[in-house]
Design a protein around this nucleic acid. Structure first.
Lengths: 252, 252
DNA sequence: GTGTGGCATTGACGCAGATCAAAGGGGTGC
DNA sequence: GCACCCCTTTGATCTGCGTCAATGCCACAC
């Protein structure tokens, strides 16, 4: 079933791509967060270099042996899981500064697929060596734990979304989440380009692509956003946030 | 909003409850997995003792300062998150040998509630000290990472369930999951007592309690299980598993 | 520039599960 | 041991989203 594992993965490590963490403008979002110069240099030293992943190609596939986690340097990824019966579920979208691949630690094999949604670059962080270093640098160890914990908390948020929200609430939550993450990276919080298709959004949100499309159209009719294909502009942030409150609007 | 944080938490640590990991029949499922006698003794040494949590009481609440993770020694817990607008979502059920509280690492505060569904006992594992020890014992460090990663993978499974499955599939997956976990603990895989209400099952599965009840009844009509209130017996395991395959039964 | 195929939009219709409602049963607490 | 309340079951109806279908648009390759 996984005979073709890795076929699409660019196997080359391209040291020329390597950018020192200390020079990286994502260091405040990424793994080096909180390290002093000395420790950051040690982390730099173990990071194996960069890897380019072209749009549509896999960074890793479910079943691949787990060796490294990855930090997104640039670009955009999705992760998805699929069952033997062919259903698949997008479990997340990752942008610059975010960490990919932690699903693989538990079984020594990746349990989901990571696919680049645009031409992207990642830093490759060999996990065994990261553990070794993190046992020497306490703040690195703690930050790694925080990153993993954050992933768990994020997943709980998605479970809440999938378990309790209606279609328009889900899409509003999704847009607000993207907006906030773009803003954290210095991009506009009100205007951005969706890297994923309606179908991928729908898979992530537990909706069909038509429902996503209709919700976009409805938001536009109501003046909350303007949307043209993959270009989105948020016009009325407060009202969009208001969609997350339930109709009865009870006081907590 | 969290003025009453901890009001229900039994603040006592009861050292009399302490059972050495080496004496615990859950050690193969729990954190000490893979440790040799010497290292297990060191882990024992940091575990702060046990805590009893009576049915219906909180082990911790969203907002509580994070200090420890917990290993369930006996009993049964649920974790849930709630939004400011009053919706809540059960994010998991935890039984003996499973670890609770890792959601709190990322923000230093717990982000969900943990409630005992029956009178229970947990081991209290101070996290700072665990990090310290795990930087000295590599296999402990690695196993901790595996436990966290397993939680991430488990959450992906729930996302898959919530995003793609229909009501009866969800309930079948839930029952099979429970069955397998009971079996791993030496209990019957075919007959067990549900500790949670239909409403809690529904919340976990993204369904209303009536839908859960109807699905139970349907399974019983079809001879897959027998169910009387909280007592469940699985009568036709293969057929129950078969429910997880989609109707079209396509070949992967 | 032009062709092509994937992606998006929109409409009509159906259904799975939510909602509303009512009654019965059993476990829990006193 | 008893009573009460919560939990569960079951029915009737409603509705949000899925499904099916057709058309249109845009990005990209050549």
């Amino acid at each position: 079933m996984h005979a073709n594992v890795k076929q699409n993965v660019v196997p080359l490590i391209t040291p020329g791509l390597k950018v020192a963490c200390s020079q990286c403008n994502l260091r405040e979002l990424c793994l080096p967060f909180g390290l002093d110069d000395h420790d950051m240099a040690r982390l730099d030293n173990l990071i194996g270099g960069g890897r380019k992943v072209k749009r549509g190609h896999h960074l890793y596939r479910a079943g691949d042996a787990f060796e490294s986690i990855f930090a997104v340097r640039s670009g955009f990824f999705k992760t998805d899981v699929l069952t033997e019966d062919g259903r698949d579920q997008v479990t997340g979208f990752q942008m610059a500064g975010e960490i990919l691949g932690m699903d693989g630690i538990s079984t020594e094999h990746h349990t989901c697929n990571a696919v680049a949604l645009e031409d992207s670059e990642v830093c490759l962080i060999p996990f065994t060596e990261l553990e070794l270093l993190s046992s020497e640098i306490h703040s690195l160890q703690h930050h790694l734990h925080k990153v993993m914990s954050r992933e768990i908390v994020r997943d709980h948020g998605v479970m809440m979304l999938l378990g309790t929200m209606r279609a328009e609430e889900r899409l509003a939550a999704f847009l607000l989440n993207l907006s906030q993450r773009f803003a954290a990276r210095g991009y506009s919080h009100s205007e951005f380009h969706l890297r994923m298709t309606r179908e991928e959004i729908g898979s992530y949100l537990g909706l069909k692509l038509e429902t996503v499309s209709r919700a976009f159209s409805r938001f536009q009719e109501e003046g909350l956003i303007s949307v043209q294909q993959k270009h989105v502009r948020i016009l009325d942030l407060p009202k969009l946030k208001g969609l997350l409150a339930p109709p009865d609007g009870r006081i907590a």
